[in-house]
């Protein structure tokens, strides 16, 4: 939850962001801001432009126009590595492990190329800590390519934790988890958020998302449909029509 002291500073400010792939509009005039320490959820139908939005924020995709500020600093001219150095980390919806490197080596990459110049020992400690938090300790020396899907998702999380982010972008990190695994993940994210890390989280598992986020945004067709308190957004008639379906209830099965 947002602290009184944090709530006035914006970690991320997105204004009038536009992006087209050929004729397909994936972002049209998107504006929102995420406060320092806030957990911010994004929902929307498939193809709404959610993942693209994360790509635009972390620089893996250039925007056509619009501005992205991180703690007041424009990001537009920075490449993904530089944005990571500023404190933005992300996970990919389809995991992108370094297949032939071990889990430890994968995560070590995250803690090695920060701008904070840790010693060799500190880099290693950061990696081990991130792996422990993500629950991957049985797989330290396993080549990442040999992990099953769920562990690959954990690896995505561990790598981004090792980057010591101030803002963490999560792309469907909970998708495919079992009911037993979900609370563990939610606990990691809550803990991280409580330690002051701002979170932007795209997720289809709405009840999980709502249990963590302070605010929610629904996008469709590259446009913002609704933004605000999670429950208000989920009760918005337009959101129900476009995304949830008329028989949706929060916290319960349909």
């Amino acid at each position: 939850m947002v602290n009184e002291t944090q709530s006035h500073v914006s970690a991320l400010t997105v204004s009038d962001l536009n992006k087209k792939f050929g004729r397909v509009i994936v972002a049209e005039g998107i504006s929102f801001d995420v406060k320092a320490g806030e957990a911010f959820g994004i929902v929307g139908p498939n193809g709404a432009g959610k993942s693209t939005l994360l790509n635009l924020i972390n620089g893996t995709e250039p925007s056509d126009s619009g501005e992205i500020l991180f703690h007041g600093e424009p990001l537009n001219s920075l490449d993904p590595a530089e944005r990571t150095h500023k404190g933005i980390a992300r996970t990919f919806q389809i995991p992108k492990p370094f297949s032939e490197m071990t889990v430890y080596e994968n995560v070590l990459v995250g803690s090695t190329f920060l701008k904070s110049h840790h010693s060799r020992h500190e880099r290693s400690e950061l990696a081990i800590d991130a792996i422990t938090r993500a629950g991957l300790t049985p797989f330290f020396n396993t080549p990442a390519g040999k992990l099953r899907l769920l562990d690959r998702k954990r690896l995505e999380l561990a790598r981004s934790l090792a980057c010591q982010p101030k803002l963490l972008l999560l792309d469907e990190i909970a998708g495919g988890l079992t009911d037993a695994e979900l609370p563990v993940l939610l606990e990691i994210i809550r803990e991280l958020n409580a330690s002051g890390v701002a979170i932007v989280w795209i997720e289809h598992i709405v009840h999980a998302l709502v249990s963590v986020v302070d605010r929610l945004m629904c996008i469709a067709g590259g446009k913002v449909i609704a933004i605000g308190d999670p429950h208000t957004v989920l009760e918005d008639p337009k959101v129900i029509e476009i995304y949830l379906g008329s028989d949706f209830q929060v916290g319960g099965a349909v």
Partner: peptide, 10 residues
């Protein structure tokens, strides 16, 4: 192993 992921990890 993965150029994009390498960039994203700094």
């Amino acid at each position: 192993d993965d150029q994009t992921a390498a960039g994203v990890l700094g």
